[in-house]
Design a protein around this nucleic acid. Structure first.
Lengths: 216, 216
DNA sequence: TGTACATCAGTGAACGCGCGTTCACTGATGTAC
DNA sequence: TGTACATCAGTGAACGCGCGTTCACTGATGTAC
């Protein structure tokens, strides 16, 4: 079982999420294809296992990066960002599996993927919330469009956040900005040769997002 | 020929870029699969045609949105952003083709895809450059890490930009931030039901990025 | 200690499918004399 | 005006491939008496 996930991971290192096949996993496992069905009900379930696995590993890396240090919110966010980037660069297919084009025909079962899938945002929110509580985050003025405000308030209640809705909305910009930058990097959207040090560029971009959050 | 691209587009409406097949295009065209080879050398070339087609259509939409008005940089950028979002929401598969996980095994021929692929950034850069020339963009202080600075200077020369390197670097944050937010939306990375009005959220996010650019 | 039986991991063949690409071909349309 | 020929769009069969999934099965291991 664990073996299957391990091999699935390995396969993903070679082949993009869409063409991950039960048969290739079986082959690599040194077993006939139908044998895999003893452990996994279908290809979809294999994908689910690998998605959860990827989210969890990324989540672990992020947590580890956070623990490694930096007391300042800015440093912590930068650390989260590089952890994400490093993992994504190391595991482009697994990154694509969870943050790229959804695998066609596959629908993730919410009850298994939501929790692991939110670990990175949760880490970011944790840092910003703490900065807010410490008075280290400037609260931006300006109203929020009603529907956004409603959603943000619902989230604040759900996750028990003290930060105001405006700040929470800005966290979304940080979150999507981070993954946008990482995706451009991993999926090679910058032309070839235009950016020589992508890690450095990411750092600059994240700095900008942090500035925009009003964090010291 | 044009017919083939048209049908390819239609197919993409139904099936994700990875499983776009020559045979399905032929089928839809009412023709035997080998006939398509009279017009297109291989599946890869079909993909190239569709990629260029998608980039061009998106570029046209963005240009149209820009022309539709707003003299202020802020309004113009917001208009570009909604044009991108609207097109992406309408054509998720074609968006995935150009901004999602790269199709495995396919390599885009740079000489055909680069120009159409840069139209959106070019539009953004045009707006920011104009704002800079009008003195409407605050030039941020702070140095840039050396490699980033070098890349930015190369780009400034290549595209004949007056804006300083720091500002250009910030344009990258706007660019990747925009596509990060749109991808999260189109690829359904926000949980279900957490965001009720995604267009409104995008607007808030883009506003933040514009603030960060120091644009009035 | 020895036998009878149940459990269970893995086998192997088969199903029906769709794919990209090749090849020799047909038959209509257009051109040259 | 009429015939001979070239062009060219499309055909149809075939190649070898990999896929997900099913099914009845073998044979080793473990358990109960």
């Amino acid at each position: 079982m664990r073996e299957i996930v391990r091999i699935g991971r390995e396969q993903l290192a070679a082949v993009g999420p869409t063409e991950l096949s039960l048969r290739s996993v079986a082959r690599e496992l040194g077993v006939v294809s139908s044998a895999v069905y003893r452990y996994v009900a279908s290809r979809d379930e294999l994908l689910t296992l690998l998605i959860v696995d990827a989210f969890d590993e990324l989540g672990d890396e992020v947590d580890a990066a956070l623990n490694r240090g930096g007391r300042h919110a800015r440093a912590q966010i930068q650390q989260i960002a590089s952890a994400v980037r490093d993992w994504a660069a190391r595991e482009p297919s697994r990154y694509a599996l969870i943050y790229g084009t959804p695998v066609p025909g596959y629908h993730a079962p919410a009850e298994r993927t939501v929790d692991p899938g939110t670990r990175v945002v949760m880490a970011l929110l944790g840092v910003v919330e703490q900065a807010y509580l410490d008075g280290a985050a400037a609260v931006p003025g300006g109203p929020l469009p009603r529907p956004v405000r409603t959603d943000m308030d619902a989230l604040r209640r759900e996750y028990d956040l003290q930060m105001p809705a405006v700040l929470l909305a800005r966290c979304f910009a940080l979150w999507t900005g981070l993954f946008g930058a990482v995706s451009f990097d991993v999926f090679d959207q910058y032309g070839t040769d235009t950016i020589t040090d992508r890690a450095a560029l990411l750092k600059v971009q994240i700095d900008l997002y942090i500035d925009a959050l009003g964090i010291a």
